[in-house]
C-alpha cells in the first residue's frame, strides 16, 4: 500500500523559538538557517500525515547527502511500518514545502 503526505511552512515563523529542542535533533539545528529548518519541519509533518501518526518530531531525523539531497532516518517504531520511501523539499521566498511518499508494510 502506498501513502503520500505533504506540508507547507511559512519560514518567518521560525526565528528564535525556545522549543526547538522538541522538534529538532541537534544535528538538524546545525543547519544554520530558518529556510532549512522550515524544510525539515515540512518534511517531518508530511511523514506524520502519510503514516497517520501523531507528530512525533524526534522520531525522524533529517540528514543531507553530499549532494544536498535530504534523506530520512526513522525510529525503530516508524521504520517497522515502512517498506520504502522517497521525499523532496523545496523553498521559494517565504515558504518551504515538502512531499513524502511511502510504501507501507502489509
Amino acid at each position: 500500500m502506498i501513502s503520500i503526505g505533504t506540508d507547507i511552512v511559512y519560514i518567518k515563523r521560525l526565528e528564535e523559538k525556545k522549543f526547538f529542542e522538541k522538534i529538532f535533533h541537534q544535528s538538524e539545528l546545525r543547519h544554520n538557517n530558518s529556510q532549512k529548518l522550515a524544510g525539515i519541519i515540512a518534511v517531518k509533518e508530511a511523514c506524520f500525515k502519510a503514516l497517520g501518526v501523531s507528530s512525533r518530531w524526534l522520531e525522524i531525523e533529517v540528514k543531507y547527502k553530499k549532494s544536498g539531497q535530504p534523506y530520512l532516518v526513522f525510529s525503530n517504531e516508524l521504520k517497522s511500518k515502512i517498506e520504502d520511501y522517497s521525499c523532496s523539499i523545496s523553498h521559494d521566498g517565504e515558504y518551504a514545502v515538502a512531499v513524502v511518499i511511502f510504501q507501507l508494510k502489509e
Binding site: H25, E61, V73
Partner: peptide
C-alpha cells in the same frame, strides 16, 4: 556527541 536519539535507539536495537 554527533549521534542523535534515533541513531542511538536504532544501533542499540
Amino acid at each position: 556527541y554527533k549521534d542523535s536519539y534515533v541513531d542511538i535507539a536504532r544501533r542499540l536495537e
